[in-house]
């Protein structure tokens, strides 16, 4: 355990982490400072000191500033960082695992499964007094996980070795089927149509610390799980047979990677709704710059995805203030051209 700590620290010291951590800090400051009202970094700092260490506020800080920073923006920005990071990291793992640059956990039915679960819960007015506003996230998470397990089970029925083509094919076919069911539920839902559509568009509005704490354990489990498998992912990126030949138990590793990735993505979209493009673009960009070694690729993708979603969410909530745009549309609008630019820009070395 001590060795592990030392290794994490030494890896962090390498400059690329410092660079991204600096960018993350800037994104966090921008994300908390800017909004329908601008609040200066000094005030933000004072509010944080007040909340954490109970140091009295500087005079110019109003009560509403405290509420906006501490209860609205800070949890929102932190959630954006976790969700963006989770989507990007699981995207990186799945792309390597399936050796397909267009793959993501969404390929494995995570998003369609979550959508269907949430749509059913909304249309049938299912609620749970115990879970209150964590109910939809829990439903979304569980249904995405159930979908992935179902897809793995089907894939195994067809091909005991879980070959990547089988997984992709079963994933896509199942997603299409589930989307059919989803359309059916939406068509029959009547009044609740708007709720379902808005959930699907993806938003980080009204997400508070309960959501943050709700998602945190899954993010930790999922990302540590993937990080532990970094060598196996390196090997799998050279192809399944080649991984087997150097001693990787590919069948076990595949299932674990898919389950950890589904945990990350499932818990993320359960909180935010469907946010596209982060999981696809971030790993590509990081790979272009830092290569594919997963001990680097996974954490850097996490940081990159977090920064990306903080900034896109900042745009989504300020560009037409006081209204907000669905953050999912912004990630795609910004992500696609950014992706194209980086992709055609050769990695300097």
């Amino acid at each position: 355990m001590q060795k592990l700590c030392i290794q994490i620290i030494t890896t962090l010291i390498k400059s690329k982490y410092l660079l991204l951590l600096a960018l993350l800090t800037i994104a966090l400051i921008l994300g908390t400072g800017i909004g329908s009202v601008y609040i200066s970094p000094i005030k933000i700092f004072s509010i944080l000191l007040h909340k954490v260490f109970n140091i009295s506020l500087i005079d110019s800080v109003k009560n509403t500033d405290v509420a906006i920073i501490y209860h609205i923006r800070l949890p929102r920005v932190l959630i954006a960082a976790l969700i963006g990071g989770s989507l990007a990291m699981s995207g990186a793992a799945i792309q390597s695992l399936l050796r397909n640059p267009l793959a993501s956990p969404y390929t494995l039915g995570v998003s369609s499964g979550a959508s269907l679960g949430v749509a059913i819960a909304i249309s049938f007015h299912l609620t749970s007094p115990f879970l209150s506003n964590m109910f939809l996230p829990v439903v979304g998470f569980l249904s995405s996980l159930v979908t992935v397990i179902l897809i793995l089970y089907l894939a195994r029925k067809i091909d005991r070795n879980y070959s990547t083509n089988t997984i992709i094919l079963v994933g896509i076919v199942s997603s299409l089927f589930i989307n059919g069911l989803l359309t059916l539920v939406i068509a029959l839902s009547g009044d609740e149509l708007k709720n379902i559509i808005f959930w699907q568009m993806g938003s980080l509005s009204l997400r508070g610390y309960d959501h943050l704490l709700g998602i945190l354990p899954f993010v930790i489990i999922g990302s540590l799980g993937l990080l532990v498998l970094h060598k196996e992912l390196d090997a799998l990126a050279f192809g399944e047979e080649s991984a087997k030949n150097i001693g990787v138990n590919t069948q076990k590793v595949k299932i674990l990677v898919i389950l950890f990735s589904a945990t990350l993505t499932g818990s993320a979209i359960a909180i935010s709704g469907i946010i596209g493009f982060v999981g696809l673009v971030s790993p590509h960009i990081v790979k272009r710059i830092y290569g594919q070694k997963h001990l680097t690729l996974l954490p850097i993708s996490f940081l990159f995805g977090g920064i990306f979603l903080i900034l896109t969410d900042l745009i989504a909530r300020t560009i037409v203030s006081p209204s907000e745009l669905p953050v999912g549309s912004i990630t795609a609008l910004i992500g696609a051209p950014f992706f194209a630019f980086i992709f055609f820009y050769k990695r300097g070395k």
Partner: peptide, 18 residues
Amino acid sequence: GNIADLSVYDTVMLGRYP
């Protein structure tokens, strides 16, 4: 075709996986 993009050192190190 289509191999992973690791440094030469890391690729050779994969031989030590077992």
